[in-house]
């Protein structure tokens, strides 16, 4: 077991974990933060995307021990102030989610992109090439991110 100390959504945690424990499983099963979803566990679908020290990260491709000392943000952290963010609100208004399973990863990946400045439509679409959605056909997601970028 390896000692792990980190901050998740602003809260400090100290845990003993097996080195092989994936960050996705650590968040979901050790901490009970089930908003982060697991879709493929080989880095293709993007459902498990969280932020590690401000950067969007595949939690299924990250060992929990690798984020020792880091600040992790998950989808649950987006609404720490209560209200939906402009990005979440835009997803709601544009029908950018159906089953909602890919949504947390979509939001966290998009939040990273938006943090870098106002993306073009092409940049949004390119970023989304790493995030799979089987429900929406993507266009509503693109529009939602465009709206959030403009706000």
């Amino acid at each position: 077991m390896t000692h792990l100390e980190l901050t998740v959504n602003g809260r400090r945690y100290r845990e003993e974990v097996e080195p092989r424990l994936l960050l996705s499983d650590f968040l979901r099963h050790t901490l009970g933060l089930t908003g982060t979803h697991v879709g493929c566990e080989h880095g293709v679908c993007g459902a498990c995307t969280v932020h590690v020290d401000g950067l969007a990260t595949r939690s299924c491709l990250t060992l929990a021990v690798q984020v020792d000392g880091a600040e992790v943000e998950t989808v649950e952290g987006l609404t720490r102030d209560g209200a939906l963010t402009a990005l979440q609100q835009a997803f709601h208004e544009h029908g950018a989610l159906q089953c909602g399973f890919c949504t947390p990863g979509m939001l966290m990946a998009a939040a990273d992109l938006l943090a870098r400045g106002r993306p073009t439509r092409e940049e949004i679409v390119d970023m989304l090439s790493g995030q799979i959605c089987r429900c929406t056909g993507y266009e509503p997601i693109v529009r939602a991110i465009e709206q959030a970028a403009a706000s």
């Binding site: 880095g43 993007g46 990260t57 595949r58 990250t62 390119d126 790493g130 995030q131």
Partner: peptide, 12 residues
């Protein structure tokens, strides 16, 4: 570099 993996995997 834009062809390497995807936007998110290039972060790590």
């Amino acid at each position: 570099l834009p062809h390497v993996g995807h936007y998110v995997t290039r972060n790590r």
